[in-house]
């Protein structure tokens, strides 16, 4: 009812604490695992966790912008695969004579942007839910990646390029630095650009925006394009890390990406959360996976524990006073 919606009091102190639920979960997860398996908190292992977080972080950053709008992007796996394959084919490799080295990076990012742009345009102009557009797009991207390699995989022979993921600065893998730089860029976009703020506005109440001059359609298209760039970066890092490219390199990435975003506290309804939450969410998900291995939890139980944790984290973060209808 409109009248009662207006009368809802501003968030109470306890409700405000909810914003910090993901950080609390992160601290608790790390403390508990550290107590059981002290090796978990060793410098070596923390570096390992960081390294394992690099690619999921890049992907989740992109997805964050989409979920902030209340939309969803299922094209992650496809664009990552395209990115990895394209990277492998552009640098010195075992399949063709290309040797672009680091020049491949802007080209692959452009490819990611192109896929995102098409996602956005089809979604906005044809008025198709993002769920279906990006699902179809994922098939298309994986298909193109498969065609490009005729189902084969291609090895990267450019060792300098592979330093992008494997080299170390201050004892920390380059991939981590790249992901951190990406996080910083994403954070600046989110907080300091009009696009970033408008993405929040779209998620906060698209109907209200009709009263303002915010170009909602353009914001949506740009957000999908931006997300595509981040997936492209994830593809580049995957290729550099594994030293190869093939069409199934994105496999399993989609749901961990969305899980990380949501566990970080970004609402699927849109408008709440952000890049900082996603950083926390990725660390929770990756830290937990790493910790379970250290604690000797059989690998097959891990997805189950993750499932329980996701439900718990989201249930804790749901603001029951706000959303009356949950779908």
């Amino acid at each position: 009812m409109a009248a009662s919606a207006i009368r809802l009091p501003p968030a109470s102190r306890i409700e405000r604490l909810r914003a910090f639920t993901p950080v609390i979960v992160l601290v608790v997860v790390f403390a508990v695992i550290g107590a059981i398996a002290p090796a978990f908190l060793s410098i070596d292992n923390l570096v390992r966790i960081m390294n394992a977080s690099a690619i999921p972080l890049c992907l989740a950053l992109g997805a964050t912008f989409i979920i902030l709008m209340g939309s969803i992007d299922l094209s992650v796996e496809g664009v990552v695969a395209m990115g990895a394959v394209l990277t492998a084919l552009l640098v010195q490799n075992g399949a063709n004579a290309n040797d672009l080295g680091f020049l491949a990076i802007p080209l692959v990012l452009l490819m990611g942007a192109a896929f995102g742009f098409v996602n956005g345009v089809v979604h906005v102009k044809l008025q198709i839910p993002s769920f279906m557009v990006t699902l179809g797009m994922s098939f298309i991207a994986i298909g193109i990646a498969t065609v490009m390699l005729a189902g084969e995989r291609v090895r990267i022979t450019d060792t300098t390029f592979r330093e992008l993921a494997l080299g170390r600065v201050l004892g920390i893998p380059m991939g981590v630095w790249v992901a951190l730089a990406a996080t910083l860029v994403a954070y600046v976009i989110q907080t300091r650009t009009r696009l970033g703020r408008w993405i929040f506005a779209v998620g906060g109440g698209e109907d209200i925006l009709r009263l303002t001059s915010v170009p909602v359609g353009r914001v949506r298209i740009l957000a999908f394009t931006l997300a595509g760039v981040f997936y492209g970066l994830g593809g580049i890092l995957s290729a550099a890390q594994l030293g190869q490219g093939h069409a199934l390199m994105g496999q399993g990435r989609l749901f961990t990406t969305i899980t990380a975003v949501v566990v970080g506290g970004t609402s699927l309804m849109g408008g709440q959360g952000g890049v900082q939450n996603t950083l926390v969410g990725v660390l929770i998900v990756v830290g937990l996976a790493n910790g379970m291995v250290l604690m000797g939890v059989p690998p097959y139980v891990q997805t189950g524990v993750q499932g329980v944790l996701i439900i718990a984290a989201v249930a804790l973060a749901v603001d029951r006073s706000r959303a009356r209808i949950i779908k």
Binding site: R197, A201, I208, L209, T212, V214
Partner: peptide
């Protein structure tokens, strides 16, 4: 009457929304 501010943005952002 049914307020047109976006509650997830800051006051300043709301005042200048679309006029940044």
């Amino acid at each position: 009457q049914e307020q047109s501010l976006l509650t997830n943005l800051t006051v300043a952002e709301n005042i200048w929304l679309g006029k940044e």
